[in-house]
Simulated scan of single mutants.
Amino acid sequence: MRLAALLILVVALSAWLTGTARADSRNAAITQLRLEQADDGVYLTAQVQFDLAPVVEEVLEKGIAIYFVAEAELYRERWYWTDLKVAQAARYMRLAYQPLTRRWRLNVSPVPITNSGFGVSLNQNFDTLADALEVISRIGRLRLGDLAEIGDDPSHAVSFRFRLDTSQLPRPFQIGAVGQSDWNISVEKNARLPLEKSK
């Protein structure tokens, strides 16, 4: 009897904490998610809506870079076992303000961007923060793999995540960001998507 009561308490507490974490995620939402088949592979397109808190904008304007990560996984259903992950991809984005030029610089890479160098990345410059954030929020043509690897099923189970990566911030900011909802930009969506032909 006590064990059952304890189990119910743990489940209720877990549900409450999960609900609180979602509510603190700066109103982030995935407004579009699409799976496309092209001649050279299968691509995911997503649109994310989020707002930066004033404290995050202030940190950016001081020249401290912030990092975003978009991750996607694609699964094939199996009736006899758990779903099989057949593809995964990620996009890493670094946003920084350049005080000398008064422009915003965005680095985009398929691999994590470290302080030791940007590796192979696409660089773009913007006049305003709003322009840079608009590009970050549109995850266009994230390549998941070849059709031969993924399969030509009419629909696929997809898991998509987008988040602000606070682990890449300088150590004093990491400590200050812990537990603060201003820094909690994170959203995830699991959906079964039709595989559309690219136009």
Rank of each mutant, 00 (worst) to 15 (best):
L84F: 15
V86P: 06
F68P: 04
T82V: 12
K85Q: 12
A87R: 02
A70G: 09
K62N: 08
E57V: 08
A70H: 02
L84E: 15
R78C: 13
Y80E: 09
A72W: 00
W79M: 14
V86Q: 10
V59L: 09
A89H: 06
W79K: 15
Y75N: 06
E61V: 12
D83Y: 12
R76C: 13
Y67P: 07
L84I: 14
W79G: 15
G63R: 03
E71A: 10
K85D: 04
V59C: 07
E57C: 07
L60P: 02
K62I: 01
W81R: 09
W81I: 03
E61Y: 13
I66Q: 11
E58R: 12
D83K: 12
A70M: 00
V56A: 01
K62F: 03
A89W: 06
W79H: 15
A89M: 07
V56Y: 00
E61D: 05
E73Y: 15
I64P: 04
F68I: 03
A65G: 03
A90W: 12
K85V: 05
E61N: 13
A90Y: 11
W81N: 08
A87G: 08
Y67S: 12
E73I: 10
I64W: 08
K62E: 05
L84D: 15
V55F: 05
G63C: 06
V56I: 05
A87W: 03
V55L: 10
K62T: 10
A70V: 02
V55A: 11
L84S: 15
D83C: 09
K62A: 06
Y67L: 03
G63S: 01
E57P: 08
W81C: 06
K85E: 12
W79Y: 14
V86M: 13
I66V: 14
V69A: 07
A89Y: 06
L60T: 00
L74F: 09
E58Y: 06
K85T: 04
V69M: 05
Y67R: 10
V86F: 08
D83M: 09
G63M: 02
K62Q: 10
Y67C: 07
V55N: 08
A89F: 07
R78L: 13
A72Y: 01
A72L: 02
Y80G: 11
I66A: 11
A90T: 12
K62H: 09
A70W: 01
A65D: 02
L74R: 09
A87N: 01
L60W: 00
E57M: 04
K85G: 07
E57I: 05
V56D: 01
A70P: 10
V56F: 02
V86S: 07
E58H: 08
A89I: 05
A72M: 00
Q88Y: 15
V55D: 07
F68T: 02
E73N: 14
L74Y: 07
A90R: 13
A87L: 02
A72D: 00
